[in-house]
């Protein structure tokens, strides 16, 4: 039996060691969030030229079909509950008697410092090694904290069971899972297309080329207003497009560092 003094000292040492390790592990959790992540691979990003965009909505349709999104009913629409991973944001600017309406396509802004992943209690939303903010539908508890934390309102909640009219049930995209009721979902930059492209490149025994991977919205845009690619590669089309005096990011001062860049209307 140790004298009482020693045991108390041991207890205090143990206590602070435990406290320290909890603190250390939380630091690891923060850094694995992507704030200081070292990404040697590509940084997938997007440039949307609002001068070229006609707000035709083809990207919205392309995205919905690609990602098996529900059509939604008029009742749900009235509640604002329609899920569209890519939506068109109407912005009205008035200066004196001049009123200008802009229509801005808004996918997930794919922040480099995402506020949504930080607050998730189960790590159901996370930043993957490829820099894309993902969502694990099977782990999500549906607390909607991430949805509230997202300043862009670009995360969506499944209010009920997934439903489609009978004749549209067949053409599901087999690469994208159907989300159950009560979980959160979001734009993943068509991550399944990246996986496909990676598989194909591996099969052919060559490195992934940028043109192998294009999200559905980019492919659907008739005006070619959306450019997609590796922002780490200074010679890529997307880097060149982003290097523009019209370039800005949404709510830049919040420090979220979006990987979606907009080119202001000229």
């Amino acid at each position: 039996m140790l004298p009482e003094k020693t045991s108390r000292r041991n207890f205090i040492t143990g206590f602070f060691t435990a406290l320290g390790s909890i603190f250390a592990s939380s630091r690891v959790a923060v850094s694995s969030e992507g704030r200081s992540i070292k990404n040697d691979g590509p940084k997938w990003g997007m440039v949307i030229d609002l001068d070229k965009c006609t707000a035709c909505g083809a990207c919205v349709v392309g995205c919905s079909v690609e990602n098996n999104q529900m059509l939604g009913s008029p009742e749900e629409a009235a509640m604002g509950r329609i899920i569209r991973w890519l939506k068109i944001l109407p912005v009205t600017e008035a200066e004196g008697s001049r009123v200008r309406q802009s229509l801005i396509p808004m996918p997930c802004q794919q922040c480099e410092n995402p506020p949504c992943t930080r607050v998730c209690p189960t790590s159901a939303t996370f930043m993957g090694p490829d820099g894309i903010v993902g969502q694990v539908y099977d782990r999500c508890i549906g607390c909607r904290y991430c949805v509230n934390a997202c300043p862009y309102t670009c995360k969506f909640f499944n209010w009920g069971d997934p439903q489609w009219p009978e004749n549209v049930e067949t053409p599901f995209n087999p690469d994208v899972s159907i989300r159950d009721k009560g979980v959160v979902e979001k734009c993943l930059f068509c991550h399944h297309r990246l996986q496909r492209a990676n598989d194909k490149a591996r099969e052919e025994g060559r490195p992934l080329k940028q043109e192998d991977y294009i999200p559905a919205c980019v492919a659907a845009c008739p005006a070619r207003a959306i450019v997609f690619g590796d922002m780490n590669d200074s010679q890529s089309e997307v880097s060149k497009a982003a290097d523009n005096h019209r370039a800005y990011r949404m709510l830049e001062d919040l420090g979220t560092k979006p990987k979606v860049v907009y080119l202001r209307e000229g």
Binding site: S26, A29, T122, A124, R139, C140, I141, C143, N158
Partner: peptide
């Protein structure tokens, strides 16, 4: 809080996959 969850059946995920930076975990 459990009633507010979209998936109350998965409530224990908060303890099974704890994410230390989440204020919800602090609260739990």
């Amino acid at each position: 809080v459990i009633i507010d969850l979209g998936r109350p059946d998965r409530f224990l995920n908060v303890l099974l996959y704890p994410h230390l930076t989440s204020p919800i975990l602090w609260d739990v």
